[in-house]
Design a protein around this nucleic acid. Structure first.
Lengths: 209, 209, 209, 209
DNA sequence: AATGAATGAGGATTCATTCAT
DNA sequence: AATGAATGAATCCTCATTCAT
């Protein structure tokens, strides 16, 4: 009787094992942070022995960096660049998308912020990865702003961008803490409007000069 | 002149030891978070043996909760309620104070946010303490807003307050991450203005109804 | 106004403190054995700081030896040598007394047996004390037997005495384990009769020779 | 002749390691009891690091429970049910077997009794295991008694069984304490006869009614 | 591709004890 | 007569990681 070649099956299992490990690690890490994530805990959650985790990942650092990487990918897929003529509408659109993405896959930002807040001496790759991903987002948003309001000084662009991004972080945290008591959608709506208004008024000032 | 004998320093001095331990723990905890804070590290930093830490604090949880408690106290002292007639000025004043307090004693918020982001199943007393302290701040700000803009609906008050508090958290994080690249004072100035404008425009809508 | 001299009061408190410590130590030790009895536990149970325990007792060994000593005293008071002509009645009497004493103050034998079963290399004073107290009891019972049955060989005396004493230990343990399911009084009644019968029949054999 | 390479011995060998750990733990535990058995001591005795002990056993409780379980197995093998027509002979036979088993493998009962005497609030699995094993033995002996003396009331059966088992415990302890001074075989011979006589005389009383 | 077993370092916490007051 | 504070050694147990199979 014809049998499915063993190698085939095994390779497929390999993929699946990797996925199971990442799922478990994401769970644990976003629950307890970097130090709180022990290989033993991940092993128990995914059902594979600790040594198998080391077959798929070099070390703990590598594992958590992979978690960040994958969850950022998932997250990105949920956010697309909106188009249209009306800047206010487009910003509002963007805000909604980000809010919804955060509600659906909060792991990325939660774990990222946890890592970002730590200041330990040794390098943690997952932290570096998060920060660079975040930097990239920052740059793109700055570019969009420049396009919308060409009169704005670089200083104003940077200020506005930083405000836009980091206040959003704060709103996300509020939702994480407050749970159902917090209406993240409404907060992001407000945030989008405020940033837009700020951009308009700063642009006015610049143009008047 | 009679000199205080050296042995004196070696003598039991509960108050001072407790202080030294708290200092060390605050340092370590705001650098590495809850799990990253090992008693051995704190012991090394404060010069007292680990067992002495357990004389002053029930356990690690108790120690870190005490760190949060004390650092909140320090922080509060730095923020006083401003007075004056012009609401915009008063809000701007408040913003500056908070920004400066965050620059001077960032430990409280950094550790607090790290704890807040975790969602481990067991209770962490320091986390609970941070959240209750934060709740209190929230309530006070809401009260001030009600005073300024009596026409605002409770829903709007809550939305604005949450926005004001949590965006500030985000700005703080941006400063923590970005270091000298980030101008926290400017960010808080912008934030104060935006919240004020938002309050005014929401109040307008309410009054028009 | 006349005041009770301080020294007086203090000395009285000293006695009481010692008593409180011994009470607590007896409790803990008969619950958890020698190693399981920590000074901290005793301190918590009696309300005095650990250092106060060391004022009253040289060290842990000394404390537990004192516990054994005191509880043996209490125990002895409950057992008096019965008199009368009929040997069977006297033995039955004795049995009942011992059974009742064990029901009322079981700490002595429980802790004693726990200590006796251990075979650690270093000497434990409480163990030695228990064993010597037990030896003394053994000798007295042997003397009584010799009086009752002068014909018995020394070997028989020893065998019977050992049987009488150690089976009683076993019955006590059965009660400790079985609680209300075990009727210690009935067991001791049976035991008394069996030992008496054994003595009689061994004496018969000896006389016949 | 090809030699087994030395490295072989260093290779992982779960079964043997487990056995070595159990051997060491049995040694230590029957010498010092539950609390006195430290993992470090067991580790030193078996040559494996403490962390390896935790690979084979969940925790100390689990380890000591396993010791009890295994030593009971060994013990059981040494005691077989004797047959024959004469009840007195059969009981005497049984007594001898038990006495000899206790002399050869005393660990089981020594550790078991140590655990049984403790009354700590938290559950100790090894204790529970010992007690259940002991219960089973009790039930079997009661069944045998019922067969021998069908006229005996249940109360008498229970009394006799408890006496038979628990006095035996006591004799064992006497041997543990007294060492070579105590003739365990003679004590068990006497014990067997006394229990037999008691059964006969109680059965007589029952039949007369 | 996977895993049972092992391991040294380090985790939090408790230990019995001491000492200055 | 008593105690707050301190301390080094030991407690149980988990850590990240490796290695032979």
């Amino acid at each position: 009787m014809a049998e499915i070649p063993t190698t085939r099956r095994r390779r497929a299992n390999g993929e699946e094992s990797r996925r199971k490990i990442l799922d478990a690690a994401a769970d644990v890490a976003s629950e307890r942070g970097y130090d709180g994530t022990s290989i033993a805990l991940v092993s128990k959650k995914c059902g594979l022995p600790a040594s198998s985790i080391y077959w798929h990942f070099k070390d703990k650092d590598d594992l958590i960096a992979a978690v960040i990487e994958r969850s950022f990918g998932t997250w990105l897929e949920a956010v697309s660049v909106p188009d249209g003529d009306n800047p206010r509408t487009r910003i509002a659109d963007m805000s909604m998308q980000i809010a919804r993405a955060l509600l659906e896959t909060p792991d990325f930002l939660r774990l990222g912020l946890m890592l970002a807040l730590e200041r330990r001496p040794e390098e943690v790759r997952a932290r570096t990865m998060f920060l660079s991903v975040r930097d990239e987002a920052h740059r793109r948003i700055a570019a969009t702003m420049r396009e919308f309001a060409p009169d704005l000084s670089e200083r104003s662009i940077k200020l506005l961008t930083t405000y836009a991004v980091s206040a959003a972080d704060g709103l996300f945290i509020a939702k994480e803490i407050g749970g159902d008591d917090v209406d993240l959608i409404a907060l992001f709506e407000l945030h989008g409007n405020l940033v837009y208004d700020a951009a308009v008024s700063l642009a006015q000032v610049a143009a008047d000069r």
